[in-house]
Design a protein around this nucleic acid. Sequence first.
DNA 1: GCGCTTCGTGAATCCGGCC
DNA 2: GGGCCGGATTCACGAAGCG
Lengths: 366, 366
Amino acid sequence: MKTMTKGAAALPLNTIISGDCIEAMNALPAESVDLIFADPPYNLQLRGDLHRPDNSKVDAVDDAWDQFSSFAVYDKFTREWLKAARRLLKPNGAIWVIGSYHNIFRVGAALQDAGFWILNDVVWRKSNPMPNFRGKRFTNAHETMIWAGKDENSKYTFNYEALKALNEGIQMRSDWVLPICTGHERLKDEMGDKAHPTQKPESLLHRILVGSTNPGDVVLDPFFGTGTTGAVAKMLGRDFIGIEREEAYRKVAEKRIKSVRKFDKEALQTTTSKRAEPRVPFGQLVERGMLRPGEELYSLNGRYSAKVRADGTLVGNEVKGSIHQVGAAYEKAPSCNGWTYWCYKKDGKRVPIDILRQQIRAEMAN
Amino acid sequence: MKTMTKGAAALPLNTIISGDCIEAMNALPAESVDLIFADPPYNLQLRGDLHRPDNSKVDAVDDAWDQFSSFAVYDKFTREWLKAARRLLKPNGAIWVIGSYHNIFRVGAALQDAGFWILNDVVWRKSNPMPNFRGKRFTNAHETMIWAGKDENSKYTFNYEALKALNEGIQMRSDWVLPICTGHERLKDEMGDKAHPTQKPESLLHRILVGSTNPGDVVLDPFFGTGTTGAVAKMLGRDFIGIEREEAYRKVAEKRIKSVRKFDKEALQTTTSKRAEPRVPFGQLVERGMLRPGEELYSLNGRYSAKVRADGTLVGNEVKGSIHQVGAAYEKAPSCNGWTYWCYKKDGKRVPIDILRQQIRAEMAN
DNA sequence: GCGCTTCGTGAATCCGGCC
DNA sequence: GGGCCGGATTCACGAAGCG
């Protein structure tokens, strides 16, 4: 068992903790987890894990009161596990919660009240849902996920380029079409029955973990079930912590995860954004002699020009400053990317100066 | 003005009431309305300006009516208008509310607490949403609607067969793909600017009203805006009551609804028969306004014609049914591909309706 | 008139590192 | 922690303009 120490307590990585998720979370060290994925129970019936606010018994109350009471009990449970979960998140951590119309509105409101900051709601659109047999409602063909940062200022992880690549070059939308979990992926018990009633497809967790974690991150699932989160985390080179009350589920999950193999390191590298690349000051081009002080630069559209100065600033017609500032001033725009805006003359043709930056970055990589 | 008396007060049908929706609703008689459609403020909390990559500025929804100082204030407002709305519903009435992740979880929880019984959450998947310009989140490509009965025992209206027909024989799902409101349908003010920042498409209301009301039903919209609910209600032979605070919106809505024509009685009769099941539902052409209920279609050979109905069926000379069924009946053939058989008139020329299906397929490919 | 290109715009909680 | 400033970032349509 791989562990990680943070303060006094140890973080039991890649294991399944047995027991109630609220107690188990409270026993873990604060601010130690990068991402939480939670698939909480949503039946509003009173169950062993749900306590009434006053522990009183309900006997022969009218329906309205009973309904209100059961919402109150569910809300209390929700607020407690969300509070425990939020404590475990690193400052830039985030959470995903999945639910249906029975519970997701209560969970979403509790999430906001707890200080989480919603980033998106994402709809899992099932390509093969169960039809509505009685013809009294719409086919319940989707579930809702909420993605939220620990707070409003959380610098959450979002692998924009990787998700865009997953979507054939187009920005990923908030509605995901994915099939439900069937066939070989669906785990069975000894009797041949499904091992868990609501096993989530690995494709769903794949997209979530690729999009909002990096390799080596710690992912916590407080309602682990048969361990889809752990299995996909392992494949993707992330560490997981699972919490599950039911021994039967833990056993299935344990066996399942043992048989999973991590993908090659190469396969785990995803498309990265320009933002992640090292910053190159424009002045370096001058220092290195790629551009000379006094040399003229031309705007991409050919309408403007400006002169390079020795300190890496530009001077143009009544404006001077950085490549970005002068470009923005000329275009009367709020901002401007000088790297793609300005060109130098090479063999009589205009070439964007970004070419020179790329040369420097290539050198730096060696 | 058509009115209806129920108890002491009169019901102002097919008019727009001026003023605050809570006060206005409290002045109306209890249990007098069949359906409520509500598009309340979303409580967007926008901070700075947002620019597109081309430096143009996004026209944000920064209207005063969308500003609330806290979740608590928003919740109080929500619970009050929901309470007033619920009082107006007949015992078997129902409500639809639309929102985004900013407000829908709070609205949904309040709805449940008020005693409404959620029947489905329905996702409006936008075929052409605004992208995420900074690459920091998923494209916000959907909005969520909640459909709920007045209480758990409400015998709500659900025109299962009509919706199934609209979806060409396949049970209607909880996710609807429809384009946002643009082009001619989007209302403009005298300046040529959009008359309302969040005008909903008529196709959305068409599906809601066909599915959960009957001709002659009373539909209330407490956040009437520019009156999409009223316009579609009138087309479909339902009575409406609108409530709107802003005079500018009321004026636009008034004018809009005046120019709307009710569809033929025949077109409003929805089918009760079962349908065959191809892929792109013909009903979508009607919902999206590509073909209008009551519009005449002509056979490719020019010998026959039939009229389009609101649920996506055709009615002709002694025959009614799907585009395929009516075509087959006319040709005394065992079967017929209605898509290539039927034409609509464009600039006096017959054009096969398959052209329209291809347009939708192009959108769906996105 | 037709096809091609350009331009405008839509319910948006839309940056982050360094000094 | 606040302010400065470098610099990264968009999809689907419809309308309008052009040849």
